[in-house]
Design a protein around this nucleic acid. Sequence first.
DNA 1: CGGATTTGACCAGCGC
DNA 2: GCGCTGGTCAAATCCG
Length: 740
Amino acid sequence: MWMLESSNGESTNKEVVNRFDNKNMVVEVVKKTSSTSGRFDMLTDIDLSVKLDEDNVDEDKKVEKGEHKKNPQIGQDHQMCGTKYDETRSPAPNFRRIRQQHENGYAFKCKVGGRGSEFRERAQLLTRGAEPSSVEDESPPSSPAGPTASVATHLRDELMAARTEITRLSEENDRFRSMLTQLSTEYRNLQIHVVASMQRSSDTLNNQVQSPQKQCISESPIILEASIPSNPDIKKFHGLSSPRSAPQEQIAKQMIGTRIFYNQSPQIQDITVSRPGCGRPSPEGSLSPSESFQGRPAMLQPPSPSQKACQLQQRASVHQSEWQANKSQKISHCDVPQGQSVNQFEGDQVKKARVSVRARSDAATMNDGCQWRKYGQKMAKGNPWPRAYFRCTVSPGCPVRKQVQRCEEDTSILVTTYEGTHNHALSLAAAVMASTTSAAASMLLTGSTTSATPHMATTPQFITISGPQGQNSTAVPAISASSPFPTITLDLTNTPASQISNRSNNSPGTASTNLHYFQDTTINGVTISQATTQQQLMIPQQPTTISCPMFLNETAHKHDGSNLTLRGAFSDPTTHHHRQMDSSDGTRSDHQHKPAVTQPPESPTTLAESMTAATAAITSDPNFAAALAAAITSILAHQHNNNNNQSLQDLATQVTEIRHREGHQNTSLPPSSFTPVASSGTTEGLQVQPMSHDAELSTILASAMMSTSKDPPSTGLSKSPRPFVSQGSAVAAAPDRRHQ
DNA sequence: CGGATTTGACCAGCGC
DNA sequence: GCGCTGGTCAAATCCG
Ligand SMILES: [Zn+2]
């Protein structure tokens, strides 16, 4: 027993009350008591020194009062649980200590040392209070005396118990570890499988594309309209500035709400992408404005297969280039330029990728969750409605741009084309859009048409991919000079029938689905409330075009900000006129936007799920594996009654599950935030609930697509959006107002 | 007054 | 080289 005099007059006594020897470790129990005025009245510390065999040198052990833990393999866990390492004092490399101080003054300290460690630093370890750092003698264990004897015994028992527990935990940890490893392996294999499947699908698709126009709608209308002139999608621009009503604004505000961090955030990347997108972040500085505009749609990095490796390493290094005011030059060639690596080329392609969204809206623009500033408007050939150009102003350097134009044939349809990748956090709605854009880029990139196709084959038919020239597709001729970028069209109007009719003879309005319930699905960490419908007209093999009936009506007039009100009505089926318009135009076709064939009617119900799921899915994995999984998942509901794709469903399920297991759940995007079911047109009160009518569907969709907020990327979610920047855009007001 | 919109001008790419 | 078109800039204008 030692007595140490503290600076404050108190003295501390130490005594080795017990010593436990084991072939693997030596444990010393040192009782410390502090006394005042020579009276030992308080037990302040019991120092447990454990000397381990060399084999256990690196193991951390902790012994707490009444609780013992040891698990060499989960030392981190211990650490996380509050145990502190005092490594700074470790005299030897292999010497680590863990100290746990109890409130009542007891501290059971466990020292772990390598061979030869003599544990002469216990005094130093117990530096609290008045205890000076003195070296304790390695004196032989003194016989327990008095009350300390029982304590020592107890400690020894506990130590043994702790060891047992540690061993158990270690074994358990091993099991978990192996389990995780197995899951990871399975996941990888599954991804490979998915990719392979997609590849096969793409091959099939290509074959189909060879003889395009003749294909029945039910088949898969992939339209590679690269050579097609004017872009039908964006033909019309409805009136332009329409005044916005207060009520509408209010609604819009209400709509704004859930937001998530999307892009740049690595977390998101993790969440959305199982394998981080390749940060092919070629500095945008090299990009012309237009390039950046077209570029990386949605925050995801270009996912070309060739970039996978890169993707793995480079994560979300989304560099967002400053908006450059230069004029841009667009790459019109589809061929890989000499001297340019495939990756580079792909990257360019991605940059060029565009996503066009067709949605019904009376408002000048669609509320997509971002702030936009109009920087131009001009008449586009072939469409009496002006085309408005907007730039994202959420972040100063955000390169994202969008074009808004009314559909000539159906002025209720607003065609919004997005290009570029946001360099900031996005609201939920914006994220959805961005995701879609990313997905489009990914698809276009990866497969060119081919690769894109495969995915699409499994996705709901509301997406149309069109590209300048099917990169792999022979069907598509040359790219038009002005529209070198591939475009994916999301048709949110419920015009499947019309679309079909355009390309096929389906009668409009045939698409109808019953929305039965919403089902939460997590894809890439995003929980999606999917509507499950009983009647689904999904046509399995339609790769390219997916028409997703979405009944979004934006009543707000204010440009982006405002609101979007969804009318539950299915709109007329004549909204798709992509190719037809082009052909009918007779005008020059430089439209970059090449809408594709529309799909067979799809029930509105599926829209929400399709949209969200597909988007989320697409977003997540550059390799498309994730995208595919998501897509599959998105259509699971559709296929509930359809046994055709049981295997597909299984695959999707597996992927999803695995992803979950691997921790891909979205952390920054609370599942609830993405639950698109909103009541009362508000995104704030998202909840999963049965949906049975259009209004509800509209609301859901609105939540998913349009709810927005413009808060800075500080919070993942915020309900209160700041007002949209634009003051009532005049996009839809009067056609022909300006001619270039 | 600051910010957003409007709108004429400018530029680049492409076809002829 | 010219004309056309898409896309963008930026001064003027509008608006809250
Ligand atoms: Zn942005």
